[in-house]
Nucleic acid binder design. Structure first.
Lengths: 332, 332
DNA sequence: ATGCATTGTGCACACGATTACACAAACGGT
DNA sequence: ACCGTTTGTGTAATCGTGTGCACAATGCAT
């Protein structure tokens, strides 16, 4: 009861205390299992008294199911992912699944880290990061069938995936900007070589092509506010563009600040700025960003659905496609 | 080698393949352990070929050490915590420790969740949330000695804690605002009953008292942008205050937007607005907040130090105190 | 009263690794 | 040539649960 008992009590010890065998202890904690209700009540009472809880590590070893889920993410602080992470963690916890976070910001030991996690026999793997290749994930978690939130074209039996399509929304946004009279477009990438960035850029590039236009310049940032600010100064000053499509919302906010502060240009009259992600901050009054946004709830619903199919051991590759929508703000 | 092997290979099977006993397999993977180097090399080669990795669950059961760390946090998306979480996760991973995230936003099943995690025999527990009481944490993780980032006064042998002191910095900030001629102060709390909120408020209240002043009003939000915005409208319009000290940076940004947009008042001339936390966003050009900030790196250093002491099984309660500094922006 | 289905419990093994102990082989010194 | 030490490996127990199997006890129908 009080906090002086250092070591955790085991099922065998509790069995002795309750005058039964350790098998019966185990059954008392299994909801549907042949055991007399009187015995169960007595055991649960004794268990509570001595602070007994079945050891999940031992159970996992026996069960071949750990109820652990590995979440591979780029970063925790980054708002574009954080909202989804938060949602997913809640949904997992509601199912009594515990999330292990693998945060692979720096390139060096991503694979090492994933190997370490695979050692813990995680039941599911959700890869949010575009920094890890599908093939690596499949090789490392070859026993688990990862769920990959990917923009890579993939035709692998051993992967489930969520595809995201923003072409229509991008078309709507470009349409409005062109009708507003903007002519010189720049794309500000978040990374220089990820599939997700290439695909996002393609959505907008296609919309431009359709109207006989094209990106005049492509700049590269790192998804951060500072990089958005810095690159925007160059784009506006040196390249004289009047519309910047950014790889995410945070860079778009940086670009907007740069335009206003450094060059005295305002949105949407002087220049148009567009973000991507649709994070909550984009809708704040001080930002009011026009952005290509994804419904976070629908997105996480899809992830959870894949996890459940996986739990039910339904075979075959699974793929879910989601479409983005435009959020209209005052920056474009 | 290729991805067709569904099941994971065990040490006993690998032993047969390599013509040794399973004990020798284990030794091949223990860095300092009596084993012939030729044997080790051969085993590692065969292991690589068959994709063998020792099962961490089984090892944990035997070792009585899981190398899992429970992180109890309020939210993942919230920037005030996210930066620290990110840092800590990296530091843990560098030590081959895997973080399990417990996100207890809604009151209902926080204890349930912590009990579930304790079942996994986590080696360490770090409690960031002020939503869970120290006593609950100690009771549930009675075998682990939690590390609590707390503002509660605590004298418990079974807890290590990190205390945070912002009284000096609060004094500096109040000093400047008073010298700027502001007279009517309001405090905008993030919660209505947490220790952390009470203590933060006290730092500023003491500084006011020292100068013969006091808070005229106290409002309550929920640490969100929207609540900052909404409460600030009331404070400025109804109560006519000219200085608002906010419980965190995000609410301060909301308050600043409300002042500017709804009432046409600007900082720092018409009103002063102060945040707390010192998140990266506070320094963005569009915000440029004056805020009571904590050095994130020093903070996480302290957490890691406590974890290491705990690992080394140094006995006794441990407490580390950190002091905040003022970050000067254009809002006060 | 007998036969059969049902219920409740214990025994013993499996899960996959680590490790104390035992023992054979190799080695070095006199 | 002999003995003591070091080195390398196998055997078997252990960590804490879950569960198939066996078996006693109970209930029910004839």
């Amino acid at each position: 009861m009080s906090g002086m008992s250092r070591r955790r009590i085991t099922s065998k010890e509790l069995a002795k205390l309750a005058g039964v065998s350790s098998a019966t202890i185990s059954r008392a904690f299994s909801p549907d299992s042949r055991i007399g209700s009187a015995t169960r009540d007595r055991i649960l009472a004794v268990a509570r008294e001595h602070g007994y809880q079945p050891n999940a590590i031992a159970r996992s070893l026996n069960n071949q199911r750990s109820r652990l889920v590995a979440l591979v993410v780029n970063a925790i602080g980054n708002p574009c992912e954080a909202e989804e992470q938060q949602l997913l963690v809640h949904r997992l916890q509601a199912r009594q699944l515990l999330p292990i976070i693998l945060c692979c910001a720096d390139h060096s030991d991503r694979l090492q880290l994933m190997r370490l996690a695979s050692t813990y026999q995680v039941d599911h793997v959700v890869v949010f990061s575009d920094m890890v290749s599908m093939q690596d994930a499949v090789d490392i978690f070859h026993t688990t069938k990862p769920i990959i939130v990917s923009f890579e074209p993939l035709d692998n039996e051993n992967v489930s995936s969520i595809r995201i399509d923003g072409s229509e929304a991008a078309d709507e946004i470009i349409d409005k900007i062109v009708r507003d009279g903007k002519k010189r477009f720049a794309y500000l990438s978040g990374t220089n070589s990820s599939w997700i960035d290439k695909l996002r850029r393609k959505w907008f590039a296609d919309a431009l092509t359709k109207r006989g236009l094209a990106f005049e310049t492509q700049a590269f940032g790192d998804y951060s506010y500072d990089s958005g600010f810095k690159e925007a100064v160059l784009l506006l000053h040196r390249d004289k563009v009047d519309a910047i499509i950014c790889g995410n919302d945070v860079m778009a906010i940086g670009a907007r600040d740069a335009a206003r502060r450094v060059l005295g240009k305002n949105t949407p009259d002087d220049i148009a700025i567009v973000g991507q992600d649709g994070i909550a901050m984009a809708a704040w009054d001080c930002n009011d960003l026009t952005t290509l946004s994804l419904d976070h709830v629908a997105f996480i619903d899809a992830v959870v659905e894949l996890i459940e199919r996986h739990d039910a051991e339904i075979e075959g590759p699974h793929s879910i496609t989601l479409t983005c929508t435009a959020r209209w703000g005052s920056t474009a």
